[in-house]
């Protein structure tokens, strides 16, 4: 169970190796990587990730702990970057390791759904002709709510 907030890039392979680190009880590992996407055919210069430093780590830890309580996990990890990121850059990752694939998949989705609505990050897209804050989606709240049943 680990959470990191950083400006630097990360290496998914290295992170997964560290996460599992010789633990032979693990039967399934699920990873997700979020990437800066240009939907404008080359007009996106960068995506700026702003966050609330005093709150971010604690918010991510709360989400991570909720997943650990709900599913059988050997380990889990959330890394989220901040700063100015180029199209194609990695924004964040989650990884879950479990004896069984169902737990690993569900926990990874849960982490993503809660992270989207509860972790204090904001995205701003910088285009050649101006900048725009990315709006939140009602669908993200709905995605989170399905875990409340």
């Amino acid at each position: 169970m680990a959470v990191r907030v950083q400006a630097e890039d990360f290496d998914l392979g290295d992170e997964v190796s560290k996460l599992t680190d010789g633990n032979t009880d693990i039967g399934a590992i699920v990873t997700f990587v979020g990437v800066v996407r240009d939907t404008t055919n080359g007009a996106l210069l960068s995506m700026e990730l702003e966050h609330y430093p005093a709150m971010t780590k604690q918010a991510l830890e709360t989400i991570d702990q909720a997943a650990a309580k709900r599913w059988s996990l050997n380990a889990s990890m959330i890394i989220h970057r901040y700063g100015d990121l180029a199209p194609g850059a990695q924004i964040m990752m989650v990884a879950t390791a479990s004896p069984h694939r169902k737990d690993a998949f569900e926990a990874a989705e849960f982490l993503m759904d809660y992270l989207k609505t509860d972790a204090p990050f904001w995205k701003k897209e910088n285009f050649k002709d101006g900048a725009k804050w990315v709006g939140s989606k009602a669908a993200d709240e709905d995605a989170k709510d399905r875990w409340k049943a």
């Binding site: 979020g34 990730l49 609330y52 924004i91 964040m92 204090p120 990050f121 995205k123």
Partner: peptide, 12 residues
């Protein structure tokens, strides 16, 4: 002590 105002989050 500290009050924060911000838009809905858009991380991930």
């Amino acid at each position: 002590k500290e009050v924060a105002f911000f838009p809905p989050m858009t991380g991930g």
